[in-house]
Structure formats: structure tokens, C-alpha cells
Design a protein around this nucleic acid. Sequence first.
DNA 1: CTGAAAGCGCTAACAC
DNA 2: GTGTTAGCGCTTTCAG
Lengths: 345, 345
Amino acid sequence: MSPSRRLTGPHPTLATVAERAGVSRQTVSNALNNPELLREDTLARVQAVIEELGYTPNRAARALRTRASHMIGLRFEPAQEGTSNALIDRFVHSLVEATARTGHHIILFSGDPDDLLDGYDELLRATAVDAFVITDTYAGTPQVDLLDRVGAPFVTFGRPWDDPSAKYPWVDVDGARGAELATEHLIAAGHQRIAWLGWEKTSRIGEDRRSGWSRALAAAGIDAAGLGVRITDNVDAARMAAHELLEDGTVTGFACASDTIAIGVLHALAERNLRPGADVGVVGFDDSLGAQVTWPGLTSVRQPLEQVAIEVIDLLHTVLSLKTPENPARMLEPSLVVRRSTRRD
Amino acid sequence: MSPSRRLTGPHPTLATVAERAGVSRQTVSNALNNPELLREDTLARVQAVIEELGYTPNRAARALRTRASHMIGLRFEPAQEGTSNALIDRFVHSLVEATARTGHHIILFSGDPDDLLDGYDELLRATAVDAFVITDTYAGTPQVDLLDRVGAPFVTFGRPWDDPSAKYPWVDVDGARGAELATEHLIAAGHQRIAWLGWEKTSRIGEDRRSGWSRALAAAGIDAAGLGVRITDNVDAARMAAHELLEDGTVTGFACASDTIAIGVLHALAERNLRPGADVGVVGFDDSLGAQVTWPGLTSVRQPLEQVAIEVIDLLHTVLSLKTPENPARMLEPSLVVRRSTRRD
DNA sequence: CTGAAAGCGCTAACAC
DNA sequence: GTGTTAGCGCTTTCAG
């Protein structure tokens, strides 16, 4: 005699479905997780009841039993104001779309701004997440060491700058190639003296992008001397640096490490009554909303974030199934979105 | 004789802690959830072991038992390109910060773009979330009906436009007041003929903001005839509308329903060689990144999203503890961030 | 104040 | 193929 209890609670359980379908709970479970084990008619009957009752397995119970939460943690930093670079936000949108197809969910957490590692450990010990996506690899990757140590799966958006031979799975966009595209585009538009406005030397990403600019100039036989400038990532610093470079009248192109910097250059042009595109070509980086709305339209290097998200989730999937990914290091190509800041109409 | 098993797995459990501290599992549980029940020395001893072992309660087990996941669902729509308005992204950042203090977490999910209700039900039936935050109230609120029907807790960012007497908890920002602030600011700067560039009539939020503009003009005894224009929310539509309004040379002020629209006005000014601020005052809405980086700096109405998030979480807390919030309808005041687009230097 | 027993809903292992 | 048993880690009774 089975102790069949009828639950009065709002949610049907395995037992409810089993009773209604006239099978055991295990059979319902199999219908869900190993449908090939059931006879066709039994399966159909069980599925009909599941449908009818609107049954969805209880996540907590399933997680407790299988030790898999199907949650992916992402540490979400406070909003950065004053920069047009909301790249991470766009990435998160893509990530949510990408996870939707796999049954995983993104859970956002915050941590002490002074402690890059804060928050990870707790979620892990609570078995609240199966894995992490790490985005802030530009700041070095202490998180990677931590997660490696405790054996937690993760994938990073951003390559292992500190240790190119590191073998954890990552996805990144070739920033040097992006800057090269930008510079080639300016050269093709007839510019010769093309400046680089980038970040401080401490930024690996910044130096990488800068190398793409150098490469493009070298390939075209253009001397880069005095044209590479390093500043902090804000509009005003860029504006001032641009004024300095524009002083002698020979510089007519700017490849920039960010849209914020490029917009600073546009400000300088406005103040000098120079026409973006016609007089001076300007290219930004990241195709941020700022690039899209700013006057007269900013040409910018765009990272394929949708694809990055898909690759990240794909890698995560592989890692979570304890398989070794075939290609754990995935470099994607950026593209150039051309707008009026480089058109010589 | 207690069946004390030593777990070899990575995570300590209640049993591990209990054994190590020489108490029963229940006592450890109490140390966590009802510390006032324990004798001081026992409590201290248990806490020391918890600390030492780095124990964190298993969320799945706790959720299964208490029927509370401590997760809050937020449906996250695909990124909107071409508009400077990433308000929701900024809100999510604030929300994550706000939840951090309460032990809740935000889980992001996506849904069929054609079905506003998609996704909610499933998370609920899976008991994956305790409650929802709803942000898209401008599109009407079918979600509210759904959640009300199934008895799921939620709080909205956005008031019940369709039914002002609805008694569910919400937090919103007074958009009419924001437009009024913008218009008053333009009047104070000496402008008289101040145009409104807003959204189509179908937008409740748009009409609400517009009413603030009318109110400010009326209070100053200025005739608004012919100055209120409704367009779609994009840079180009705004640019063209601005050109039309600027044609007769009398309009010198623009209050706008969004930063996107305001930036379109700035484009028109650039094309007419009019100086933002000195010749024509322009005010946007939402203080987006675009407003912050665009030349020459766009004055904009700012919504206090950090505070909105805090109030939302506060209401959610109250609702989740089955109490009736004292003040379930919370309207917050926006503020004006003044930049050069309204300075007459 | 502390301990023992029961069970949340599910799935892995094994019997039939 | 299908049913039975056990237990994931926790908290809620209820005894002591």
C-alpha cells in the first residue's frame, strides 16, 4: 500500500503526478530525465499529466539531490558613471539570452569593492551556484586562482594576461586586431599621421590594443613617433590630449582605446571648429551607446558580445559535464561599425 | 550512539560542525537561526567551529525545507541598441547592491519577447524564486495580474498607470515633476518659448512627463501652443523635429522626454551652428551615459535609482514576511543635473 | 536550553 | 520497463 498523500499546497509534486498517472514517482522522474527508459504509451500518459497539472520539478529538491543548482554566478560591480563604456551590461544581456537555451540561470552578486574575491566563496560553499563567469580579468585574475584552488568551474571573458600559457577556459576578443582595423580604416580614408589615444601602460588590454595600431602603421610604412599617447579613460583627459596633438596641424586621425576617449577627441574638434570625418577621422572602441548617439556618429570597433556569451556558455557546459573542452581558448574577431566620424563626404 | 558520519566531501555540513563542536545538529541550526536560544558559551563554541570550518548552510537544503529560496527574479530583456537609455541596467546594478544587504540574490531570466508573461510561471512552479521585481510597467501590467492570480509576491518599479487605485506595492519616480524641474530651469535661464519633445500619446510615462512641462509653462504665464511635439524615441526623429521648431527663430528652449531625444536636438543645433547653452537650452531625461559624455554636456533629469532599488527591496522584504507595508505606494523625486547645454556663459 | 525524529521533493541504485 | 528504498542537508515539531 503506497502512502499516497494528496498535497493541498499550490504546487504539484512528483507524487501528485505519479498518483494521477497511475505510476510510481520514479517513473515520473524518468519521464523527465530519462524518457528513453519508458514505454511509449506510459511516457505519453505521464507527459499528459505533467502538462495538465503544470508540473515543474522543484529546483531546491533537485539541486539537493543532484548537487547541481543550474545557477551561474556573476559578480556585478556597481555602475560606472561618466564613461560611455557599459560593455558588461550588454554582455550580461547576451549572457542571459545564451543561458536561456541551456536551462541555466544567471545569478548576480556583489562584493566588497576592495576585495576582488569577496562573494565567490560563500556562494560556492552554499552550493548556490555550479560555476562562475568572470569578467574582470583586466585587473589580474586572483579569482581564477581562488576558484582553481577550490576546484570550482568557471569560464572567463578575457584572456589570461598574466600567464598566456594558463589552461583554463576563456573567451576573448582580439583587441589588437580591433585597433588595427580602426587604423587601417583611417589609412584607407587617406589619413597618414594617425594618433593613438590609449590607456596607461599598466593596462594589458590597453597595451594590446595599442599594438594593433603600431602594427597597422608599420605595415603602411608610417612613422608612429610621438603619436602614441597614454591617458586615463575620461572625456576631459582625452579632450586635452587631442588639443595637444592637433596643435601642429599634421595629425588628422585618431584611433582610440575607448569610445569615452574618442568622444573626448570629438569635443576637442568641436572646440577647434574642425569637422569630424571631413577634417579629422576618429575611431572609438566598443560601439557603446555613446558612440551610437553622439554627434555626428562615431565609428567604433565592436566586440561580438552575443557570440562571446554563446561561447562562454558552451565552454561552461562542457566543463560542467566534466569533459575537457576541445578548444578552451577562444579568440573572437571584432568588427568595425562605420559612422560619420570617419567619412570624408 | 549518534550515527556521526564524517563527510569527506568538500563542504562541511551541519553534522560536521555539530560533531566538531560536540553538540547536536539542531543546536548548530539554532546557533544560525535562533542564536538567542543558546547559552552564551555554547554559542561561542559553535560559532568558532563554523568560522574555522568555513561552514555555510546549503541553500538547496534550506530552501527545500523552508520553502524560501531567497532569490528574486527579474526578467531581463535583450539589450536595446540605438538609444542612450540604459536605465534598467543602472537599476539592476543598484538592485544587486540593495539585495546584498538582505541576503537575497537577483536571478535574471529571459522570456519570449512576444509574451510578456513568459518565464514567470516556470520559476515560480519550480520554487526557484520567492518574488519578482517588475520593471516594464509602461507596457501595461499583465504580469501583475498573473502574479496576483497565482499569489506570488512582487514589487514594481513603475506605478499602476492603468489603475491608479491598484493596491500592490510599487516604487516610482515623479516624471512630471522632473519635466517641471527641467522647464523651470530653462525659464530661470531666461528662455520663454520652450518646446516639449516627447513620446507618442500612447505612452503614459510620456504624457505624464509632458504634463510637468505644461504645468511649469502655465505657472509662468507662457503660452504652450504649438510647442508640444510628439515623436518616436530616436535621435533622428528628434533632430528633424528640432529643425522644424527652430525654423522661425523664436524657440530657444527644449525640454525632452529622454536623453536620446535631447541629443537629437543637439545634433540639430550643431547643424545650424547654434551653441547649446548660449543660444538654445536643452534638457534631457534620465542622465544616461550619453548625457554625461556628449558634447558639450547635457543637462538632464536624474532618477534616484539607488533609492528606488532600496525602496523596492524594502517593500519586498515586508511583503515576503507576510506583513502589509505601511506605505505600499512610494513616489520619489527626481533631480536636475546641470551641464553646459543650459549654461549661458 | 539541548536532543531525537520526521520529512521537504527529488533522483541514484537496485530489485522485481 | 517499472516500483521500492534510501538519503541529499536542513529546520520544525516535540521530548527531555
